[in-house]
Nucleic acid binder design. Structure first.
Length: 747
DNA sequence: CGGGCTGACATTTTT
DNA sequence: TGTCAGCCCG
């Protein structure tokens, strides 16, 4: 058996698999077989080291990773053994533990989990209650700050004690109220799942001891993506047995903006001085040519601790192709043309090709080109199934059936479908409930039990009571009915299909109704559970899985995907688009070194997805928010020696309607005569060349030094947006007397 | 109370 | 260029 498990593993992988005890840090380069190591190690622990699978916990970040791992383990160990293992995402595992033990924190175990949409709705209510303006205090920004605080385990009170700005003051007040409403709604947000588990462990050593006793062998995937709360969670659990096995790659850390703390992986050796450190450098995915280019890019980063040297026996392969497109349209048509050619040559099938980009907006042109070429494709991302409005509306009723105190769900459907409860009535209800000091549902209940002084007109009151009865009925029925029947009852009683037909035109109503039916179908999977558990189990999965098996890689279609989402995937042919200043690195990430380096890693992740051939593309100009803008090639491309590229000339390009000659990589080239708008004569094209490019450092006599954010040619002049120390300014080059600072940093 | 219009706005998003 | 929120009117 041991030979089976270790066969086909290289020496480093074998060492990782067979190191059973103590802290282990595995630094796994892209394509180095880390999932294989994780699964084989688990199998090894069980079959060779005799560890009871009940003692093993494996944590991942995504459901997809967890599912894959479990599938592979079933293959290695069989269904029976695999079911005894605990494999799941941080959030799912924490939710499970909290359902068991949250009572120790004085909370109910039947809490609902709020997703970001729910959070936003709740925050909007908070803002209204506190008389704060949504425009000046964007709910998402406030939630971002709260999320950060929660990741650091800073509660509302502590946060309020350390405010350093007006914004902090606002956040502090919102945080307190937000948290109070969460509690009142018997709800936890995603961050709470982690934070409350850590708090549970801290405040209740006996509970922690129970889990330490149970889980003696811990494995964490994508360790570079852990945030502070996850780090503390893992550390607490591992404290007793110290059998902690983490896998990660600092070079693939791309979620710092979401709270991931790269220090967790960099300091592992300090946390565990006796740690075994193993580097996986053999790559099984790509050609050496691709690896060389990717490594050149990443090695140019000043922030490397564990520099790996990736190698492969796959052979040198073809050089990385660098394509300079005239503009974004040309870029898209080039990519599509290449894919068509690869298919015609028999080298590839559509499913072998992936098109990657920094921002979702970039997919549009690509899609148009794919449609024209009749190439089948899918775009990863977009609105996920359980986030669709009609699905969430129906879900809101189900959540209320399980937990009527869920105020976000209650507000969501109190007037859907319309039953004459307008905004006015809702805010009266909110104010009244607050006066009474009770949750919204409780207030409705008071109203039903002839409360003396309520603020509602007779009509509003009867509408509210009708809604109250509906929720109360659902609440009563949930324990007696199978989930499918409950949903059928709900759909019939609130006349969902009719409501959709009223709100949308025929086609869209059909679409949305189909989604609702799809939700109904998903409920079938729970039919074999005891009736009283079906609804809760269903809602839990919906909250944490959040998507119906999205990426079906069985279909043979081109994949369009953001670089972030591409992590963990691989394709024979990869096209990375828009490798330009302002886009990659994104203009919003050019402010500080850390986010700039994260952009570099993002490109690195994209490049290392390629198995056989990699295309890197950039365009000289690009339509940005409807305006044509000059776009300079990314500084990152300069970090890859030209010898590693095979530059590809464009084979003819289409003229843009832009009337001026434009800068293209410092060389201006002539364009066909400007097209005229009918009726109005265009200004004579001034022989102007753009002088400034994004990322460039400039000096202004009054404003001082700054960095060019963007530059565009407008009516014979160049409009330059520059970020100065105090703020951004838009300047006209002809007036502003901007001076480029030449210290060799950029060109 | 709900439908249509106008103006600001604009990364990435594992759960 | 496209979306979303806020505003005005029937």
């Amino acid at each position: 058996m041991a030979t089976d498990l270790l066969a086909n593993l290289n020496p480093q992988q074998q060492r990782a698999v067979t190191t059973v005890t103590g802290p282990v840090l595995v630094l796994a380069g892209p394509g180095s077989g880390k999932t294989r190591v994780l699964t084989h190690r688990i199998a090894y622990l069980i079959t060779e080291a005799g560890i009871d699978p009940l003692h093993i916990l494996a944590v991942t970040f995504t459901n997809k990773a967890a599912r894959e791992m479990r599938e592979r383990l079933v293959g290695l160990l069989g269904e029976a053994v695999a079911t005894d293992l605990t494999v799941g995402t941080f959030h799912a595992i924490c939710a499970r533990w909290l359902r068991r033990d949250i009572i120790h924190l004085g909370r109910e175990r039947d809490f609902v989990i709020y997703d970001s949409d729910d959070q936003e709705r709740l925050m909007k209510r908070v803002l209204r209650e506190l008389n704060l303006n949504e425009k000046q205090n964007p709910p998402r920004a406030i939630l971002g700050a709260i999320s950060q605080a929660k990741n650091e385990l800073v509660g509302p009170e502590e946060f309020a004690r350390h405010t350093r700005s007006y914004f902090d003051e606002v956040v502090a007040r919102c945080y307190a109220r937000y948290q109070a409403l969460l509690r009142e709604s018997n709800a936890l947000d995603f961050d709470d799942l982690l934070g409350e588990t850590v708090r549970l462990f801290r405040e209740h050593p006996a509970v922690l001891a129970h889990y330490q006793q149970r889980y003696r062998f811990l494995m964490v995937d994508e360790y570079q993506d852990t945030n502070r709360a996850q780090y503390l969670l893992v550390r607490a659990l591992a404290e007793r047995e110290r059998n902690l096995f983490v896998v990660g790659d600092e070079a693939q850390s791309i979620y710092a903006w979401r709270g991931a703390d790269i220090r967790n992986i960099l300091q592992f050796e300090r946390d565990y001085p006796d740690a075994t450190v193993i580097m996986l450098e053999q790559n099984y995915r790509s050609t050496q040519a691709i690896l060389d280019a990717a490594q050149a890019l990443i090695n140019a980063s000043p922030q490397r601790k564990y520099a790996k040297r990736l190698w492969t026996t796959n052979g040198k392969g073809e050089q990385v192709i660098l394509y300079e497109a005239a503009n974004d349209e040309d870029e898209a048509s080039f990519v599509v043309g290449e894919i068509l050619r690869l298919i015609a040559e028999g080298a590839a099938r559509p499913g072998d090709c992936a098109i990657m980009y920094r921002t979702n907006a970039q997919s549009r042109l690509v899609e148009e080109a794919l449609v024209q070429a009749h190439l089948p494709y899918h775009v990863v991302g977009g609105v996920r199934f359980y986030e669709r409005k009609e699905v969430k509306d129906v879900l809101a009723y189900l959540r209320l059936a399980a937990n009527p105190y869920d105020s976000v769900s209650l507000q969501r459907v109190i007037n859907w479908p319309g039953r004459g409860i307008g905004e006015r009535t809702v805010s009266e209800l909110i104010v009244w409930a607050r006066q009474l000091g009770v949750p919204l549902y409780q207030a409705l209940s008071e109203l039903a039990g002839d409360a003396a002084d309520h603020p509602f007109a007779a009509r509003a009151r009867s509408a509210l009571l009708e809604f109250y009865t509906l929720i109360a009925d659902l609440n009563r029925l949930r324990e007696m009915m199978a989930l499918g029947d409950l949903i059928d009852y709900l759909l019939a009683r609130v006349e969902v299909q009719a409501a959709l037909k009223r709100e949308y035109d025929a086609d869209e109503a059909d679409d949305r109704w189909r989604n609702v039916q799809e939700l109904r179908n998903a409920a079938l999977a729970y039919a074999n559970l005891p009736v009283e558990n079906q609804l809760a189990a269903f809602l839990e999965d919906v909250a944490l899985i959040a998507d119906v098996d999205s990426l079906d890689r069985h279909t043979d279609v081109v994949t369009c995907i953001t670089l972030h989402q591409a992590k963990g995937l691989e394709f024979p042919y990869v096209f990375v688009l828009g490798i330009e200043e302002g886009l990659l690195p994104h203009s919003r990430s050019q402010t500080d070194r850390d986010s700039l380096e994260e952009e570099r890693r993002l490109l690195y992740v994209g490049m290392t997805r390629a198995q056989r051939r990699l295309y890197l593309c950039h365009a000289g100009q690009r339509a940005l928010f409807g305006r044509v803008t000059a776009s300079a090639r990314s500084r990152f491309l300069a970090d890859i020696p030209p010898a590693l590229f095979k530059p590809l000339r464009r084979r003819g390009y289409r003229a843009l309607p832009a009337p001026q000659p434009v800068m293209f990589n410092d060389r201006s080239f002539n364009q066909p005569p400007a097209r005229r708008e009918s009726g109005r004569s265009a200004p004579l094209p001034t022989p102007l060349k753009a002088v400034f490019f994004p990322g460039q450092r400039v000096r202004h006599a009054t404003f001082g030094e700054g960095i060019v954010v963007s530059s565009r040619l407008i009516e014979g002049d160049e409009e330059v947006t520059v970020r100065f120390p105090d703020r951004e300014r838009r300047l006209l080059a002809s007036f502003a007397r901007l001076e480029p600072i030449t210290d060799g940093s950029d060109r």
